[in-house]
Nucleic acid binder design. Structure first.
Lengths: 243, 243
DNA sequence: TAAATAGTGTCTTTAAGACACTATGGA
DNA sequence: TCCATAGTGTCTTAAAGACACTATTTA
């Protein structure tokens, strides 16, 4: 049995106001490395896999520990294992990607959490990252953009109720292009993934839009016969035993 | 750095004559375990990852070593890592799936190759496998069937030249349903993945069909920004250094 | 000339996209 | 009443599927 280090990393996506324009833009939290290799460079949150925990649990644990956010969606992306990807020895990384809702992005300041070494970046304007994380992020971005077009994962980025205009803005931010409001509405309504709450939003200087929520009985994404990832543990939850 | 065993396994697909009907059917080679755990049970070919080799190289090496076939296509499927998936200790398996062309399925009898413990099974009628390999195969089958509908991977299962009827039979065997010859032809021709050689097949008691070959300039499958897997090493090739 | 498969034509249905139009509340 | 966005209608195009039809070989 070979001596190979096994790690997990996670590419976390959320929509945050663009630092200049203020418009919602796809963003990723990174962690500054405080030791070699690549000391000082930004990297994906992650850590070693504990022998007693599943890969998915390991991913949610390390991402909560390092960035303080709790994801609404978590899916395995790919396993990176080129022999030379870490200069300090052989490391194989099982990479996950995650979505976070805006209300989950509280700025943590509690003890043991080093806010100085965690920062959010615009997904399309990242610095050059440690290890092979540039490639990892590029692949995660491709997967997110591909998947948002044929599944309901956008709900992982939005609050529990929303207008169709807000949902469309999520899709537009992810895909980085504008969508026709009429056609978008028809597509979403005919997909059956969304249900009108009956309420309306007041306050705009225009016709009040209907509020919708996602139909929780429909699966968020088609993983085929693969068991869904374990539920995201809340701070009180003990880790689950799923793969 | 935790003590976790890192292995690779591969789900290998080929079309072989059905043992009863003789018609081509999707088949998978399995290896009988000769030691605990699960001694006597059938399992996917695989082995430990060598610290010096990439994951893809490890997959092609172990599958050639154990089954004697050389794949025409190899792609990473998923990494399985439930803490209890092996009764003898923590093992994380990076699973690949592969396609093999009929001409590559020679029955090996050379020294060091134990034909008694390798056998081909019809993909939809496998015995209960060792470890969690039932789940692994189910997921691989789903991926193959999904992918054959929107990509050109079927070329990984067919010889270098073929008639559209033969290609359609490959799709039919994979999807396990009949396809309309007229519509299939139009789809394949408009996809641009296939080129007529100008030759025809003589001998049938009917109009001689055109021969086609795949356009090798077109990619076999869209992996996004992910680097393609390393070329399959022939027995003489030294292992590559890609992920 | 019959059998059998190769290959073409065409109609229907569905979905995506473009874009004109109506609806309704707030300033 | 005007502005802004919500929401509807409808036309065009492309692709998939059903299925009738013609083409060309061998037995």
């Amino acid at each position: 049995m070979p001596e190979i280090g096994l790690a997990v990393s996670t590419v976390i996506f959320a929509l945050r106001p663009h630092p200049e324009t203020g418009r919602p833009v796809l963003s990723i939290p990174l962690v500054r490395r405080t030791r070699d290799p690549f000391e000082g460079r930004w990297a994906l949150p992650g850590g070693w896999v504990d022998p007693a925990e599943s890969l998915g649990t390991s991913a949610s644990r390390t991402l909560v520990e390092t960035t303080g956010v709790r994801p609404s969606y978590l899916e395995q992306l790919y396993t990176f294992g080129a022999p030379d990807r870490s200069p300090t020895g052989r490391v194989v990384s099982v990479v996950y990607w995650a979505l976070v809702r805006p209300e989950q992005i509280g700025e943590r300041t509690d003890a043991g959490f080093d806010a100085h070494n965690v920062a959010w970046f615009v997904a399309d304007a990242l610095p050059h990252l440690a290890f092979d994380h540039d490639d990892v992020v590029a692949y995660a971005l491709w997967r997110l953009r591909t998947k948002v077009e044929y599944s309901a994962i956008a709900q992982g980025l939005i609050g529990s109720t929303f207008t169709l205009s807000e949902l469309r803005q999520v899709h537009e931010a992810v895909l980085d292009r504008v969508l026709d409001p009429a056609n978008f509405r028809r597509q979403v309504e005919s997909s059956g993934t969304v249900v009108a709450t009956g309420e309306h939003v007041q306050g705009g200087r225009h016709r009040p839009p209907r509020l919708y929520r996602y139909d929780t009985s429909a699966p968020l994404a088609d993983l085929g016969p693969l068991a869904a990832d374990p539920p995201i543990p809340t701070p009180a939850d003990p880790p689950g035993e799923n793969s």
